[in-house]
Design a protein around this nucleic acid. Structure first.
Length: 949
RNA sequence: GGACGCUUAGCUCAGUUGGUUAGAGCACCUCGCUUACACCGAGGGUGUCGGGGGUUCGAGUCCCUCAGCGUCCA
């Protein structure tokens, strides 16, 4: 048995075990045995060229905890890793790099050459993050690693497009889209972020072609030469095709059908029209209608058959239709220029500072431009089913409130713009017959195989066709993730990946920020594609969605590169160990609430690991290691005759924490789980049991028994802790000789391990066996196993131990108060009734050891010494120093006041008739007992004070 | 404008279906290197549970309302 070193050094341990796990293929998903439950997780695929940040650490630690716990519970665990090609993000990165190093744009290279460069970039920078996840200890089945641009996955993406196209869910249309002038592509509504933006609003006069009149408040008729309207975008005036007013607005009804002069661009007359979309309360109640540059205006234009004048180029510069003064200018420069011209011409009444919501491209960070373009659109499939599965609880979201957000989005769902004007991505599998004008294709043309070809492999006569240039939105590939990673749609690949066992997946752990982007769409895709014709339960992509919080900095700000407030997880692993980082982070990650990152907590995680390490080290030093090779072997070493209150209390606490962990995993309560483990190990085990055990070691008969209890508790604790801290637990498991699982465990596992070494072979070959090969069992299993060994836990023991603990604490308090806290040779005596004295006397060795005293004696009468009232009698401390009566009086009086206050409160409650008649008996009884205890304490304190004179 | 979340010790947060004197970690103060651990041990202080109102024998917990902060959707 190698000796355990003085402190835990994570680095070597981590590297050693991760290599061993991989060598033994520990994380390979086994083929489930008949009746064996499966537990599947698909990783939210990070960007292929991304690097690990704190959000990933939290998200993946949670997944690893879930999957490792599932393994210990004997489930067939499968965690599928992989990466996302991240269309816009990756393409932008490579374009920037290209510009910097070669001074070229993608069009200078051409599509084919550019894609070569992106693949090279991916080869060089890609998959780093997967290596980093190994540092963190993640137990993914790496042989199942997927990438959304892999050949197999790409076929899945194209297949889904074709299926949806064939069913009429996909169409092509010229519509208003969110255009990003930097990335030069359309975006979906979800990729647009609304941000309040400071700018100006321009109050303008549009001159009437024929002057008219109006009526003021007093009924006087006044001349009217122009209309007043306000706009934030004067640069688009040349694209105005009308001015609209509300049909019921009495100020303007008589003007509808008349004309105004357009103040910019070619000097032409544009009509005044009436449309209900106009808000009469906004500004002067008139709206300039610019169908090419605003969604609402476009719809007004459609309703009134107005022309569309597109005055802005794809890159956000103005074209000649914006007028000679603005042509060529960038859109914001053009805005300024337009205002200047309007002012010169007398059309500008005033420019006021103004803040409104502007849509920004999430990726490029610039305002999007509403733009009329040809795009591919998807009418979502299975919308109603997608609502039903969440509403009916087939898919449960944690915390549950996100269901509402999800359902609300589905209620207001809009068609999805799935085409992107990028090159990096899945090129849309549509070919146009040569000579066909793509701009003028009708819905019927789309279904005409002479004009449009849609297939996986393209037309048989490619020379007569031209493929669509656009690629699909990245999310139109990742929405297939839960089943495309299990081989879909290829039957052979699905069989090989064990699709039928591992789908539906069990839990998806992700951030709520992608509930629409990803979660909702995966649900629809799963229902549509994963298992055609199967029941709805078999088609859903997952049963649980756990939304982890966002990791923020101490000030509550999102972590970002620009703020530089994001620590590098690898530095933290270096400093605190992967286990310390994992445990510390989960301690501060409440269910679905954002996490304020605090490095102190990570340090406390590390310290806890060190505490565990040393407790195990002490166990090793306390006596020879005996047979720890199975649960049964350890239980056989426990001597029921030797059980004392502390054993009972500790084992009861162990069962309790085991049950707590069962509940926490079921409810995704990770902070409560780590808290429970911490408290149990620190308070119940280290601070109390190990300390009292030192006193029991004096007796040889008790020694083996106590060590067996410790071995049992450490074993169970390691199993409970392993999902959170896999490295240290594996190391200690090995060092303390917990090599095997029980025979029953082994029998249960026969046949479950075709993919890896069988248990029998492992024994024969003496291969290392890992903690994950053991079975945790439930609290009730353990209770049963203890009962078989004639160990029946005494529920009253914990109460007696609590009393002794309290007495020890009070003794220490008294010592500290008398400035002899560190002395270990003081004398205690106690005045107590026979029953309490018996209890205390039987624990005398424990008491003197823990309180730090030479002896504890029973005093016949009250000595003239400093005293403290404890649950086990009044304790007197003899330090050999003369008693300071004044100080004693002050201390006792303070205590007495507190007791009196408490008594008064309890008496008042018990004196209230409605309390005594309505409160449940248990509460009532508790209050009465409390009152009696406090009254006894008061009497004793008063007696002590009187004795002081 | 709508929806949701948060507000408890100096800091970060627990606090299950209402029920003893509201807890933990960190920080802080005092003492201690007592043969597992100074990455530690012993002891200690700290709260009108955001404000106001209500229901109840009893409210941090349930209801109403107001305020502040945050997120999402329009």
């Amino acid at each position: 048995m190698p000796e355990i070193s003085k402190s835990y050094e994570p680095r070597d341990v981590e590297a050693k075990w991760y290599a061993a796990w991989q060598e033994a293929k520990c994380f390979s998903a086994p083929t489930p045995a008949p009746g064996q439950e499966h537990y599947t997780i698909v990783i939210p695929p990070p960007n292929v060229t991304g690097i690990l940040h704190m959000g990933h650490v939290l998200n993946n630690t949670l997944q690893d905890a879930l999957i490792r716990r599932a393994r210990l519970e004997g489930k067939a665990a499968c965690w599928i890793p992989g990466t996302d090609h991240a269309g816009i993000a990756t393409q932008t990165m490579v374009e920037k790099h290209l510009k910097k190093t070669e001074g070229k744009g993608r069009r200078d290279l051409g599509r084919e050459e550019f894609l070569k460069r992106v693949w090279a970039w991916r080869g060089e920078k890609g998959d780093h993050i997967l290596k980093q996840l190994r540092e963190l200890g993640c137990s993914c089945d790496w042989d199942r690693t997927h990438f959304t641009m892999d050949p197999g996955y790409s076929r899945a993406v194209l297949t889904s497009f074709i299926k949806l196209f064939d069913q009429g869910h996909i169409y092509r249309g010229k519509r208003m889209v969110n255009w990003c002038p930097v990335s030069l592509t359309a975006l979906s509504d979800e990729e647009v972020e609304m941000k309040p933006t400071k700018g100006h609003i321009y109050r303008l006069r549009y001159e009437l072609v024929e002057p008219s009149t109006t009526t003021d408040a007093e009924g006087n008729t006044l001349p009217l030469t122009h209309l007043v309207l306000e706009t934030t975008r004067p640069e688009t005036i040349a694209a105005d095709v009308a001015v609209a007013v509300h049909p019921d607005d009495p100020r303007y009804t008589h003007l509808v059908g008349k004309k105004v002069w357009r103040p910019l661009g070619e000097r032409i007359q544009i009509p005044i029209i009436a449309d209900k979309a106009v808000d009469p309360a906004f500004a002067a109640g008139a709206l300039k209608v610019t169908p090419a540059h605003d969604k609402v205006d476009f719809e007004i234009g459609q309703r009134h058959g107005l022309p569309v004048i597109d005055s802005i180029n794809a890159d956000g510069t103005m074209n000649e239709l914006a007028g000679p003064e603005l042509a060529g200018l960038e859109r914001f420069a053009a805005r300024k220029k337009a205002a200047e011209i309007l002012e010169q011409r007398g059309n500008l009444i005033e420019a006021k500072p103004y803040e409104n919501n502007v849509g920004y491209s999430q990726r490029a960070g610039v305002p999007i431009e509403p733009r009329l373009t040809q795009q591919w659109w998807l009418r979502y499939p299975r919308v109603e089913e997608a609502k039903a599965v969440v509403r009916d609880g087939l898919i449960r979201m944690h915390p549950e409130r996100w269901s509402k957000v999800y359902l609300n989005w589905l209620e207001n769902i809009q068609d999805w713009c799935i085409s992107r004007q990028l090159w990096w991505g899945h090129r849309i599998p549509v070919w146009y017959a040569k000579g066909v004008d793509r701009e003028k294709l009708t819905e019927a043309d789309l279904r005409d195989p002479k004009k449009i070809h849609v297939s996986l492999d393209g037309p048989a006569d490619p020379e007569n066709w031209v493929q669509e240039d656009d690629v699909l939105d990245t999310w139109a590939s990742s929405w297939l993730w839960p089943f495309a990673t299990l081989g879909w749609p290829d039957a052979e690949a699905q069989a090989k990946a064990n699709f039928s066992h591992f789908y539906p997946t069990t839990t998806l752990a992700t951030g709520a920020d992608i509930i629409f982007f990803w979660v909702a769409r995966m649900i629809m895709a799963g229902l549509e594609f994963a298992a055609p014709g199967a029941s709805i339960e078999q088609r859903i992509p997952f049963k649980h969605v756990y939304f982890n919080g966002i990791v923020r900095d101490k000030q509550g700000r999102k972590m970002s590169k620009t703020l530089g407030n994001s620590p590098d997880p690898l530095d933290l692993i270096q400093k605190y160990g992967a286990d310390g980082l994992r445990f510390g982070l989960l301690q501060i990650a409440p269910l679905g609430q954002d996490v304020k990152f605090d490095e102190d907590r990570i340090e406390s995680g590390k310290n806890f690991c060190n505490k565990l390490w040393n407790a195990c080290r002490f166990r090793q030093m306390s006596g020879p290691m005996s047979d720890n090779s199975s649960l049964a072997a350890i239980l056989a070493r426990i001597d029921a005759k030797q059980l004392d209150d502390d054993d009972h209390a500790l084992l009861a606490a162990l069962l309790e924490v085991q049950a707590l962990l069962e509940k926490c995993f079921a409810d995704f309560e990770f902070a409560a789980a780590t808290q429970g483990l911490y408290t149990f190990f620190y308070s119940d085990f280290c601070d109390w049991y190990v300390e009292v055990a030192k006193a029991r070691f004096a007796e040889p008969a008790a020694r083996d028994h106590v060590l067996a209890v410790q071995d049992l508790v450490i074993r169970q604790f390691l199993l409970l802790f392993e999902p959170f801290a896999p490295f240290i637990t594996e190391e200690l498991w090995s060092l303390l000789g917990y090599v095997g699982s029980s025979l029953a465990d082994d029998r249960a596992r026969v046949g479950a391990d075709e993919n890896r070494h069988s248990q029998a072979n492992a024994l024969q070959a003496n291969l290392p066996r890992f903690i994950q090969d053991a079975r945790i069992g439930t609290a009730e299993d353990l209770r049963g196993a203890l009962a078989e060994r004639n160990v029946h836990l005494d529920t009253a023991a914990a109460g007696r131990v609590a009393k002794l603990k309290a007495t020890v604490t009070l003794a220490r308090q008294l010592k500290a108060d008398k400035a002899v806290a560190q002395k270990r040779d003081v004398l205690f005596s106690v005045v107590a009734e026979d029953a309490t004295w018996t209890a205390l006397d039987s624990a005398s060795a424990k008491f003197t050891r823990l309180a730090g005293a030479a002896s504890l004696a029973r005093a016949a009468s009250a000595p003239a010494l400093p005293a403290i009232v404890t649950p086990l009698g009044t304790l007197y401390l003899d330090t050999g120093v003369k008693v300071d009566a004044a100080a004693e009086r002050a201390r006792l009086t303070k205590e007495l006041e507190a007791v009196k206050k408490h008594i008064a409160g309890t008496e008042a409650r018990l004196g209230n008739e409605s309390f005594t008649s309505k409160a449940p008996p248990a509460v009532l009884e508790g209050a009465r007992k409390q009152l009696a205890d406090q009254q006894a304490k008061r009497a004793e304190l008063e007696r002590l004070l009187a004795a002081l004179g």
